[in-house]
Design a protein around this nucleic acid. Structure first.
Lengths: 231, 231
DNA sequence: TACATGCATTGATATATATCAGTTAGTATA
DNA sequence: TATACTAACTGATATATATCAATGCATGTA
């Protein structure tokens, strides 16, 4: 499955985030010297909400979830991170605290880069800074959509959204192997896991999706989009 | 009410956002040359969601609401902007579209600054850029709290939050004159206006708040905080 | 004065969703 | 093999919340 790519250094890395193309060789070498490549087992925490923010992560393999630990042990999944996404934290330039947790859903490899290095680059390379600002803005825009999803749609609409999101943005293929649990989908859609199962059943009964174990296929995308849009 | 401050130019402006202190005289003069001071009547739209983003606004007087226009004519208020807040838009560096609307709740004066000027400053002044990034990050952090409020608390908790927010962050005094409508509070807490009224009544009955017309006083802040925290 | 308009309010009702209790099935562990 | 454990699933019930319909109460307007 994975290539025989040694990921030896940032300059030749085939799994690096686009943002690093904005750095010159010297800057890239600096990043390279201050990164740690770590592989996390399924279920392991990469960043823990409330802990000091010392590194940002660049996911090179696997899949991780970004989630807020909320009230009464309930979580809210903000998003997932797959290769080659960068998972920073809004704590940068602020309180240097992680404001959400990140955990590996599958076995996940990440390069951890010292935030001080990132900050140095922001200060000396304005193109890099602009790109980070652009990314922060894009996350904001995505959050607006999520706000409407979660507060103005009911369960069917939220679930339709979730499946379209998983297919298009996370797994990027149509029959896909669902590596996230029902509870994760519940945390993503802000509903109970029981209702996740129930809505999945109605989607199955209405021939919108096909579910066989962990294999999920979107059969009627058009209708799912309609459900997602009408709430 | 308002000072005899002519707001003549950015350099001497007593109502300018802290971020402009990071600019030198030349940069500040550039901003000054490309700003338009406009007063909006109550109810008027300052920025309209979906329209091109050409300017950012610095509120110098009054109060505005930032809201997403969602499904079925329902709005979600993200936040309010009072003096001396800057209201940009995450569309900067992205699609140059407004992703939320901004409307005056009271008569509101704002300086509109060309985004191209702001972008130029970001590129040439890294301290300015870092501060903007910091602000974008802070908005993200605030949004996380909002996510938990809206998805994991029920009506009483959300309303308690709303009143504490209005007192502490928006009006900044205790008996305060509520210039936002019941519908606005509904849009802020993602509930129906009828239920806003009902919960306000129970808060009144339990001696948590005092309401007389538009005048609201928080009587039992401690209990409101408790309700907010327990959901 | 009479009328329209918009906001605040109230009560009755419908409904979306969570919770609880329990079953099943698959997987790991002793 | 037996046991424990977790995740998936199901049905019954409780409850939070929205919706609907109506009323009052301002404020402005013909």
């Amino acid at each position: 499955m994975s290539q025989t790519d040694p990921l030896k250094n940032c300059k030749n890395c085939s799994r690096r985030n686009n943002i690093f193309a904005l750095l010159n060789d010297e800057e890239l070498a600096l990043v390279d010297q201050h990164r740690y490549e770590v592989t996390f087992n399924k279920g392991e925490i990469i960043f823990k909400q409330g802990s000091p923010l010392t590194h940002v992560a660049c996911i090179t393999e696997g899949l991780a979830k970004l989630y807020i630990e909320g009230l009464n042990k309930r979580n809210l999944i903000l998003s997932f991170a797959k290769p080659v996404q960068m998972v920073g934290g809004p704590g940068i330039f602020n309180d240097y605290i992680h404001h959400f947790s990140v955990a590996a859903i599958e076995e996940t490899t990440a390069c951890l880069v010292d935030t001080r290095i990132v900050e140095g680059l922001i200060e000396r390379n304005s193109i890099f800074a602009c790109d980070l600002l652009k990314r922060a803005n894009q996350i904001s825009i995505d959050n607006f959509k999520k706000f409407i999803n979660l507060t103005q749609k009911q369960m069917n609409g939220r679930m339709a959204d979730a499946f379209l999101f998983l297919m298009d943005d996370i797994y990027g293929r149509n029959p896909f192997i669902l590596t996230v649990s029902r509870q994760d989908i519940a945390d993503l859609t802000a509903m109970s896991k029981e209702n996740v199962i129930r809505v999945m059943k109605t989607f199955k009964d209405h021939q919108l999706i096909r579910v066989e174990g962990n294999l999920v296929e979107i059969i009627n995308k058009k209708e799912l989009v309609r459900i997602s849009e009408t709430g």
